[in-house]
């Protein structure tokens, strides 16, 4: 039996196809374990080696990694939701209701999407707190902290735009209150200090461009949908790339 298994493994792993894909042998020795990292675009996000101290769970609590994991989970479940959801005020609500009822696994994807969104926001805050408490933002890593803050803000805006899409009462009024805050922005808001003096009216201030109108309606839903599904994820991916690259270059600030 053993010989048979070896024979099969031999036939599979020595073929040209296999070798063209995997540039390394089974990672049973250090050379192959290093090669696994070298030859994989995702794995090589990590260095090939890392200090033993850096592996301690009670240092990073894996929070940055978890945040990224939630982001990937959100992206995947988000795409699934997009197969059924149409951002039209007349049918958005029913699409979400369909997802929850008639579509097989629909409620699973929606729940996963929602809970990983909440989890991502929470883990981003905890990650920021951990990075602060371990002083990992100190030179030379200040810029990476700034990129982190930008990612935090984009995560919050992502969550906020996603909150409107189900178009139920909670969504509509949470966004109405939020957009009224935008209207209260100083200088560029219609209701903000020195706004009217600068000619900011109901139809040309920052709230108007945020909602694409004077009321939270179809154009607001569409703008939020585009931002939520495309605009902001691109921005996030870009800044995440910078974030991961800086960690990769500046090395792990873990305990020496």
């Amino acid at each position: 039996m053993n010989k048979l298994l070896d024979q099969i493994r031999e036939n599979v792993t020595q073929t040209q196809v296999w070798k063209s894909i995997f540039r390394h042998g089974f990672p049973s020795n250090d050379a192959n374990r290093a090669l696994v990292m070298f030859s994989n675009v995702i794995l090589h996000l990590h260095p090939v080696r890392v200090r033993r101290g850096a592996l301690k769970i009670k240092f990073t609590w894996c929070l940055g990694g978890l945040t990224f994991f939630f982001f990937v989970m959100l992206a995947v479940t988000g795409v699934f939701l997009m197969f059924y959801y149409v951002p039209d005020t007349r049918r958005a609500y029913n699409d979400i209701k369909d997802l929850g009822t008639v579509i097989y696994f629909g409620s699973l994807f929606r729940n996963l999407h929602r809970w990983s969104a909440h989890a991502m926001v929470f883990s981003v805050w905890m990650h920021m707190t951990r990075v602060f408490l371990t002083g990992s933002y100190k030179p030379p890593r200040e810029f990476n902290w700034v990129v982190g803050v930008i990612l935090l803000v984009v995560t919050l805006v992502m969550s906020w735009t996603g909150y409107l899409l189900p178009w139920d009462q909670l969504a509509l009024w949470a966004v109405t209150v939020g957009s009224k805050m935008a209207e209260a922005t100083p200088l560029v808001g219609n209701a903000g200090p020195f706004g009217p003096e600068l000619g900011m009216g109901v139809d040309n201030d920052v709230r108007f461009v945020l909602l694409g109108g004077t009321v939270v309606g179809q154009s607001a839903l569409l703008r939020f949908y585009v931002l939520h599904c495309l605009g902001l994820p691109l921005v996030m991916a870009l800044f995440m790339a910078v974030h991961f690259w800086r960690i990769r270059k500046d090395g792990f600030s873990g305990p020496l």
Binding site: R33, V36, M37, L43, P47, V50, G65, R248
Partner: peptide, 25 residues
């Protein structure tokens, strides 16, 4: 790059150590 600067002695390979931790989490 930063990871090479450190001495080899207190090092572990990322595969499998760090990757397993990430998988479990």
């Amino acid at each position: 790059s930063a990871s090479d600067k450190m001495g080899p002695e207190d090092h572990v390979l990322v595969w499998p150590n760090l990757v397993y931790i990430e998988l479990i989490s």
